[in-house]
Amino acid sequence: MLKVAKPCYEEMIEDAKRRLPNEACGLLAGKGDVADVFYGMTNSEQNSVSYMMDPQEQFQVAKEMRRRGEAMRGIYHSHVATQAYPSAKDVSLAFYPNVHYVIVSLEERQHPQARAFRIEEGSVREEPIELV
């Protein structure tokens, strides 16, 4: 299960909408077992069907998390026109088995849907998101 603070969840959804028509991406972090900090990240591909986080920004945020005593709880991106389920590309580029991969689908613009997955060695397992 991925526990996400409601303000953090809403920030993620708004970020996904704001960055249309491109896919959005970001990180969820927290000091405990609840993700309550949202880091919006640059999609260096600026593309509606793919994303890649900028390494320089990744390093900056990783250091910021460390400085603040946070741990990465989720890696998020949006699918602007398809379901919230990992694509083959998402699976092949999933290198963090202990972190939830969160996908926000904007397929239905008025009703964004977020789902969380653990991805390990090509195996996808959905886990519930609990808003706290």
């Binding site: 991106h77 026109a81 083959a88 590309k89």
Partner: peptide, 18 residues
């Protein structure tokens, strides 16, 4: 030294599948 895994992906493959 800092190292960090790539974070990327996207719906491209999913569109093909769907």
């Amino acid at each position: 030294v800092e190292f960090i895994y790539y974070m990327g992906g996207g719906s491209e493959g999913l569109q093909c599948t769907v």
